[in-house]
């Protein structure tokens, strides 16, 4: 609940009015606690989780990114920005970064596009008010966790139907061996797994578009394709933008599990993403310093992404 009290006058040049932005301190209601420490006590569990699982490891990563640790962890030497320069100048890192970028673009694009397509179809069914409605609810209640599992099964080297299917066309998929085949599987599984999530958001976004606005467009524009791009799509933009950020983050970080399963922890010559490389270098290659430097770079990336997001969300139009 936002408070509604007389404005303290910060609204430029306006007469006295009720406002929920600028509230005069003395009129604002305060919740009183018996002890002044009480509020902090309430916050403590949340804060300690943030501290233990986020701040402390982050600080540790930043610290060790400046050190060169010997493989057995007995000693470490301060090396300044060496780990960063090594990382950024390594051709391997550039290659992985490049793959990550391509991977992210593909996963984001296809999981958004396919989900949108499905959502538009589903929206039609729902608006027709037919009995499929409940059926559809079921599909998306079960979908996300199961979809990931199925996706991985589909590409199984021995029992996966997609591998057999590709073989029909003479494409002998060698997942985990062939660079292209492996990346293909990674992208498809990642897209597959993310579609249900995007679908739910797009569908509720579509359902939020007023029926009469759609109908007005039906009268104003004959072509359904044109109608979609001139009315539906712009009205979905807020949802789309939110999902874009979510999906970029997903492709970057949350695909770790999928990549790990596809590679069966045997990277060899196969493509990996930046996040997976952090893990490989740190835990398989025992290069804690380099791995930390890479994770610090990733943190910076997330930080920038967050800033962009907030900037744009602030500017984002809210349609009522």
């Amino acid at each position: 609940m936002r408070p509604h009290f007389p404005c303290d006058g910060r609204c430029a040049g306006s007469a006295p009015h009720i406002c929920h932005l600028h509230v005069r301190g003395d009129t604002m209601k305060k919740v009183q606690f018996n002890s002044r420490w009480m509020p902090y006590a309430f916050l403590l569990p949340q804060l300690s989780i943030v501290a233990i699982f986020f701040l402390w490891p982050a600080a540790e990563a930043v610290r060790s990114s400046f050190y060169l640790e010997d493989p057995f962890g007995f000693s470490s030497t301060f090396v300044g920005f060496d780990n960063f320069t090594d990382t950024l100048t390594s051709s391997n890192y550039a290659r992985v970064a490049q793959f990550t970028a391509v991977f992210t673009v593909l996963v984001t694009f296809f999981s958004l596009a396919l989900a949108l397509l499905l959502a538009v179809k589903a929206d039609k069914v729902l608006r027709a008010g037919s009995t499929y409605k409940t059926l559809l609810m079921w599909v998306y209640a079960v979908a996300p966790p199961v979809a990931g599992l199925i996706g991985i099964l589909l590409f199984d080297q021995h029992v996966g139907p997609l591998v057999d299917f590709a073989a029909l066309f003479g494409w002998k998929m060698q997942i985990g061996v062939n660079y292209f085949d492996t990346s293909f599987a990674m992208v498809v599984i990642s897209v597959w797994k993310q579609i249900p999530v995007n679908f739910i958001f797009f569908l509720s976004g579509l359902q939020g578009i007023s029926r009469s606005v759609q109908e007005a467009a039906n009268i104003d524009c004959r072509s359904g394709f044109r109608r979609f791009w001139t009315v539906t799509f712009p009205l979905l933009a807020p949802t789309g933008f939110f999902l874009l950020i979510i999906n970029v983050t997903y492709a970057f970080f949350d695909t770790f599990g999928i990549i790990d399963v596809v590679l069966k922890t045997e990277p060899g010559n196969n493509p990996v993403t930046l996040v997976y490389k952090v893990y490989l270098d740190g835990f398989r290659g025992n290069d804690l310093g380099g791995s930390s430097a890479q994770s610090v770079l990733l943190m910076l990336f997330v930080f920038i992404l967050t800033i962009i997001q907030f900037r744009l969300i602030e500017r984002r139009v809210h349609y009522s």
Binding site: S210, S212, V213, A216, V231, P234, L235, Y319
Partner: peptide
Amino acid sequence: DIAMVFQNYALYPH
């Protein structure tokens, strides 16, 4: 060749 005026106006918000 008809035009309709809706109860909630149905203007294109964007």
